[in-house]
Design a protein around this nucleic acid. Structure first.
Lengths: 195, 195, 195, 195
DNA sequence: GATGAATGAGTGTTCATTCAT
DNA sequence: CATGAATGAACACTCATTCAT
């Protein structure tokens, strides 16, 4: 029971993503989140200052989950960069395929005015997953395995295709098959590997 | 009088995008849109059934604007596919750079639960810009200028990088320069051109 | 019906005083005021920015009503100061006897943290009833009919006894009779008239 | 242990007045009082049945403090009534000047719907400070030192001017000087002393 | 006795929508 | 066609109070 108390924030988080992703931020009343989490509204406000705060922190929570999944058990200084690259990219996609509501929530968040605010904060706490992937990309440039351009450009190529791919799958325009996955990594890899 | 009708709808559209993009769909009251458009709320309801309808139709309006811009003055059966490809991709990006609130609005819309509904309707009226770009991509496959894969995959590579690139620029992570633009097209082209 | 529209603010005012004075500011929900005024909550918010604003403006409304009552039909430059003084003081008391809820409301307001805020504003718009009575008192000092002291001191003597008297009546400790009224004016007059 | 009990109640009382006087009764959450008193909310509820009870008892506590201050070291059957009268009146004012938040709290309480309830109870427990001052005033009437009128009328003249004077000082309209104090007592004394 | 997490009824406020003018 | 006052359901959030520890 003590354990449950500690996890209350997490219970609220999990209830929130599911609801928020398919009714939208404003379409999901706090009362509904409370009901789904089996707590009272007051309890949510005990753990979070406001609905906005809850959403902001939920975003952080999702990022953490993704991070853990992305780099788990992966040697940091890999010898074969390409292999490493392919694994990471596929994991990124796989994470969202396994947690579709995380994907939809984060995507919605990222495209909403909420993100603008969050972004400011992010500048302060540099330690984010985005940075980590970026470091990985920078490393590739240094090793001359990737084309010699700005990290931001590489990042756009890396993440953009993944997100776009995930959306196509989400909307049922495409099937998720190993073949498709492989073709997509090929495309990404081809696009930014050094000639 | 007919002219005036069209004008008023457009005035409402223009006022809406600007507001919606930085306050969000639920963060923008009809009254505020009315004020910005210099009409009464009643008038908006004269032209649109509901707020939802307004947003839906606004999305359609934006799509039309983009379409017109994308293919304007461009010969449909071009001899040099690559040139055509590069021009189109850069126009796509340029359109949003010129109309940043269109970009933010459509992105927000596309990532919101609204889109799900809209999507169903879209299936009925096939004539959308997306289809057009897709036809262009399919044409490339037929000509064996692009790699032989599904249109959806090509589409993901094409659009994903563009969107991601635009976001980086929007958030000030990247400067918009001709050089950057050129590098991005190169990446996209390289990624899907036939070997 | 047009007339009624114009008077809507006043209808809300009248409903408010009655409720506020016997349930307190926080003890009176907006919904209750709305019900009593036979309008919707939304309508109240159409005329007043917030509950606070409503209360503030209600105070102003009450002050106006009192003012009109106090000096109505009274020649400004009276020859007999004492007569004038006695009439005004008794009118002040009478006004509140006739409008007991105005008295209780204003008293409550005056003793609450609300007044502090209002007070700041009042400094800007000097034209208040308090000032008017004070001018009357100053005039008495100039004429050497009242003792030669600060207006504030005279004011305290004038208003303090009246308020205290009204409270005693309100709490049933005292009957309101002409005799009592006369005795009270005597006391006040005696206390500040020049020797 | 008994000592501790009394202490905690007092700590809670002291924290309460300060908070209540400038945020109002409903503007001060129990949690805030608890924080200021360095106890938990639960503890407050251990000593007081409800918030209402706390406020009621706080009022009683303040009255006691005033009483002790008013008559401390003062012979009950004084020979010189006027001197005694002046001392008491000035002490009354002085008490509130020394404890401004007591003044504001009691004033607020007295003008609020709370008092109505309290008043009923008060009838039962006759032993209050008000009664004491009233006895003092009655004594003056018997001695024919004060005018021959009802105690309530004398009381109104006595207390009303004091309260009004204190408010003027509180709102900074008047400076608290010995001269002003002396002038005010003169006014009060003059107003009710026998001719 | 003391704590403070949990509760949930209750409040102020917003805003899409209607409709009489 | 245009207006904007009126509506009232719905929501975010508060806070007195309880109770398991």
């Amino acid at each position: 029971m003590n354990v449950q108390l500690i996890d209350k924030r997490e219970i609220i988080f999990e209830s929130s993503v599911e609801l928020l992703q398919d009714h939208g931020f404003h379409g999901t009343p706090m009362s509904q989140i409370a009901k789904k989490a089996n707590v009272s509204v007051g309890t949510i406000y005990h753990y979070f200052d406001s609905k906005e705060t809850l959403i902001m922190e939920l975003y952080g929570y999702c990022k953490c989950r993704l991070m853990r999944y992305l780099f788990e058990g992966l040697a940091t200084n890999t010898e074969n960069y390409e292999t490493h690259f392919r694994i990471t990219w596929k994991r990124f996609v796989q994470f969202y395929l396994d947690h579709p509501h995380y994907f939809r929530f984060m995507n919605q968040f990222y495209s909403s005015p909420f993100y603008e605010m969050e972004y400011v904060k992010r500048e302060k706490t540099k330690k984010t997953w985005a940075i980590s992937i970026q470091q990985f990309l920078e490393f590739g440039v240094e090793k001359k395995t990737l084309i010699n351009t700005s990290t931001e450009i590489l990042w756009s190529a890396y993440i953009g295709v993944a997100v776009s791919f995930l959306k196509s799958i989400h909307f049922g325009k495409m099937e998720m098959t190993d073949k498709n996955m492989e073709e997509m990594v090929d495309i990404v890899w081809k696009s930014i590997k050094a000639a």
